[in-house]
Design a protein around this nucleic acid. Structure first.
Lengths: 216, 216, 216, 216
DNA sequence: ACATAATCGAGACGGTACGTCAGGTCTTTTT
DNA sequence: AAAAAGACCTGACGTACCGTCTCGATTATGT
């Protein structure tokens, strides 16, 4: 969508900018599909560009022409997967955290859904792979955060701001910090597999974060 | 003739167990050093087993004999680094979270130290690499958590239990959940580089987690 | 005490001379057997010193102590095989080409036997391997010729000299040249597999060599 | 061309057939040169595929793609050397044994030339290596004989047939047997280094073979 | 008879080369 | 002009052996 616009008038003289208008949509789709299925089947490290090209019925150069790395392919494929899922599910592209007036309940709803998504076997392999790649490669990591993570986090910022206005959250708090108190524990358990990631845990995190550790 | 008799009652014929007593201490040290320095210099993905062997002045087989993978080498090297640092620093091998009676202050002290360690350039590359490898490879991840992470987390459990007895923390809380409220946000920022990881952030997390998000 | 004296007035200080009297006969036998059987089974190039040691139930060093190379092991093993065969077959260690007075018949008898030996599957693999190794390595080749080939050739020299005295062979001929006219064609066919090596061919060679190519 | 079609309904899935038309002539030449020079310098056993690739400035895979073994590379390199030498020397690609009417003289001419070639240091190392490899490996040996040896031998067959028609050679003789009486002794001395290989020896073999061993 | 010393089995070690796999570039032909 | 195909150089993979070396544990004399 935003894809059709050339993202850069290319400052770099060495930047070989292939003509986006002539790009084969068929190939791109096939590459996305091949990349995701391969990561699911054999894991990220054993997924190779040659393998993706072969399964997609595509020349290697077609991949190298449009993506700088295996991780970049997977990131785009994953974004595309999300978009397609969004299109399929809801008409509107934008999600919101519900605001029923009951902050705790709203947060539990959302975090439970997050738990479900994280443990969904279809998504797990590629998102782990992507996260791990981003941890090691700062450039990829920045893109990962910007395109995939930050939009979701902004939803929390919005909901928490509303809660502050409603008097449900202390007004002096930075919503960025608050949000991380809610989201980071789930991410932690998922990434490091320290303990099982369940709905009960999501509830406990919400209660604990809202009420604080100290007695009242 | 001797071939026909099973020299081992073991089931797995593939289990080649080299003789640990004959192992060369010199080689092991050299491999640890080479692995850590290479990861620091060229990054984890460009660190190769051949490279480690070459820099350590060691045959490749000596690495393959004792470790199953590059990640395993690095994990052990990192553990060894920790041990040596511990030996050098303090006489006793055991650390504790201080207990001055002021829980918030104690936690801030520890989390600030954690921040310092995470951004220490010497440790950053290998620990990122290791964490990322553990995220993708469950076996390695389990080992990483068990040997490196869990011991640290237990210190929080202990300190929080003490705080519960002292009435500084709500007695109904699971210390594991509480601890993650404190630790996970730091890990989150460090791993995903969403926002800068500072002492101020550590303090904010402690205040926020102890006091809770809702007004009192 | 014996250690302090240099066991050899030799120039080479590196000359490690193991004590032959303490040598293990069991090991030597086992090494011979292992070497011959391995060459028969997997061929000469895939026969390794480690493999011989393993099959013989012997340490690698025991081989390196007594032989300079794989080829040397095999050569000795082959010589030993010949000796044992000789001991088993005839009482006397010395062979002779029969002298019935009929030179052609005597030569045919011997050359037919040679054909049989060359195509014997048990001997073929090791002797091909040995010959090939000697072709490439002059030192080994010299030993091969001296210990294995030359003794046989001397039998022809003797028989041909007798034939010259009896007036059956032209007196001006060099027996060395004459002998090669008889033996080399067989060796040629065997080594290069140009055409089948048969009794009929042995007979043809004898007739042709004795009578000459030109009409009489 | 027929190569590119046929995706193959064939049974063998292992049959990887690279596209000959896209082959790099530069690489092939470089590999031939590197192989021959290395064999000349360090000998056949110490010539490695890695070494050939390095000297030729070629990837190892480029060798493995087109040849099954080190020996096969050398064989082709040697054949190519012969072809180039032939092109350089004479216009016509075909050689003949001269027919001056004096069979003995003609044979001596050719066999002396053969002697010269065999002791030529440039050719000696690779041809010994090739011969030895062919002795041990029947497949290679067959190719060696067919492509390198047999064409030369056919020249003898032709000359000997002519001699038979001219009445210089007994008409009942098989030219294949006769030819081996002439050629094999030279090969024997060359391969096994029993005695020096000289022009005088070539002459003696011719005289002896033509006249026969028995007195006339 | 027993201490002495070399050989023995075993196998870890620093290396070299193997044959394979994939990366990323380049070229050729097809669409 | 991009795409499918795939040959090419590069370099790492993990394995197999090389020949050296160090370990106890046998032997096997030679005082």
């Amino acid at each position: 969508m935003a894809d059709t616009r050339t993202p850069e008038p290319a400052a770099k003289p060495a930047a070989r900018t292939p003509d986006t208008t002539r790009r084969s949509e068929r190939s791109r789709r096939a590459i996305y599909d091949a990349a995701l299925s391969l990561v699911g089947e054999v894991g990220y490290p054993k997924t190779t560009i040659e393998g993706i090209a072969a399964r997609a019925g595509v020349g290697k150069q077609t991949i190298y022409r449009w993506w700088p790395s295996k991780a970049a392919v997977l990131l785009e494929a994953f974004l595309d997967l999300g978009e397609r899922a969004a299109e399929a599910a809801g008409a509107g592209g934008d999600y919101e955290i519900p605001d029923t007036g009951d902050l705790a309940a709203d947060l539990k709803t959302v975090l439970r859904a997050t738990v479900d998504e994280l443990v969904d076997p279809q998504y797990e392999a590629p998102s782990r792979a992507l996260t791990a790649a981003g941890i090691v490669d700062p450039v990829l990591g920045a893109e990962f955060v910007e395109k995939l993570l930050e939009p979701s986090l902004q939803l929390y910022v919005k909901r928490l701001r509303a809660a502050q206005e409603a008097g449900d959250v202390r007004p002096d708090l930075d919503p960025r910090v608050a949000l991380e108190l809610l989201v980071a524990p789930l991410a932690h358990r998922w990434l490091l597999r320290t303990l099982p990631l369940t709905h009960a845990y999501a509830d406990a995190v919400v209660d604990c974060a809202l009420g604080g550790l100290t007695p009242r």
